Amino acid sequence: MTGNTGAEVIGIDLRQSISVQERTALNRAFVEHGVLVVRDQDLAPTQVLGAAELFGTVFHQHNTRFAIPECPEVHYISNQDRYPDGTRYIPGEGWHTDHSNDTRPPKATLLHAVTLPDVGGDTQYANMAAAYSALPAGMRERIAGLMAIHVYQSSHSDRQLMRLSEANRERVPNAVLHPIVRTHPENGRKSIYINPIRIEGIVGFDHREALPLLEELLHHATQEAFQYRHERRSGDLVIWDNRCLLHKANGDYDMGQARYLYRLMLQGDVPT
């Protein structure tokens, strides 16, 4: 879809049986391109689950509030939800990677578009491997070996997440450490691994030093040269690699129109 990110998959119906050869080809394309856009799907939640399992094992999301009752492994994303104070909740706003506050963050996220606004609501992706490769040598040396502190909700983030229930809080880690330079376990490429919504700080740095460094890395990594902007169509099933991408949803559409998608994540490895 761009020079460094994204591939379109056509001519496949994920409601049907998928051969071993097709599954292998899909997984190879996923690792190579970071984002796969599978067009023209019409999947019920259980079929979304089946499609996701072509790429791995389900990761159980930290906040079960949005689980679909008939298939709780699958959650929904909707622009019709609101915070307790009545403010509209727009899921996915701001650059981030999903659930990096887990000891084994999900390797992938999958969204299936069900209802979309007429215009807008695109998802943007930033290729953090391409961004790392383009860093000056001095910056690569500076961030080598640094560990970031990831929490459920960073006190430095402008975006507020939905609060966890008591039961969910009990199973979500208070804080985990992950390297700022991460090596992809399947292709060996190094990436910048940061998350403005989740990172509370950097080990050994005070905030006066850590926050400007993180901001500099984010500014570099989200340049247009490293981005793919997905203009979503009804029926799209999109899966992306959280190990080497940031993403964000855009709330630039008529909020009187519904935006509703199915969402599922896949288990990942301990970042190294």
Rank of each mutant, 00 (worst) to 15 (best):
P105H: 06
A67K: 12
V58P: 00
W95Q: 02
D102G: 12
I90P: 07
R39T: 04
C71L: 03
E22R: 14
A113C: 09
L49Q: 11
T64E: 15
R82H: 14
I18F: 09
Q80I: 06
Q80V: 08
R104W: 11
R65L: 11
L49M: 10
F59D: 13
H112A: 00
H75E: 12
G56S: 01
P45C: 05
A67Y: 13
D102T: 04
L54W: 10
H112C: 02
T46R: 14
G34H: 05
D81K: 08
L110Y: 06
R65F: 15
Q21E: 15
H96C: 00
D13H: 04
H112G: 01
L36C: 06
E70H: 05
D81N: 09
E70V: 04
I77M: 15
P106G: 03
G56E: 08
P45A: 05
Q21S: 13
K107Y: 10
A51T: 01
H96T: 00
I68W: 09
A113N: 06
S19V: 00
H112M: 08
D42I: 05
G34P: 00
R39A: 04
D102S: 15
G86V: 02
T57R: 15
E73W: 07
P105A: 04
P106V: 02
L111Y: 12
V37F: 10
A51K: 04
T109M: 07
E22I: 03
A25T: 10
T46W: 14
G94I: 02
H33D: 08
E93L: 15
Q61I: 05
A25Q: 11
H112L: 03
N101P: 05
Q61N: 13
P69Y: 09
I12M: 09
P105E: 01
S17N: 14
P45G: 01
V31G: 04
S17G: 11
V9C: 04
T109Y: 11
R15H: 10
I12C: 06
V37I: 09
T97Q: 10
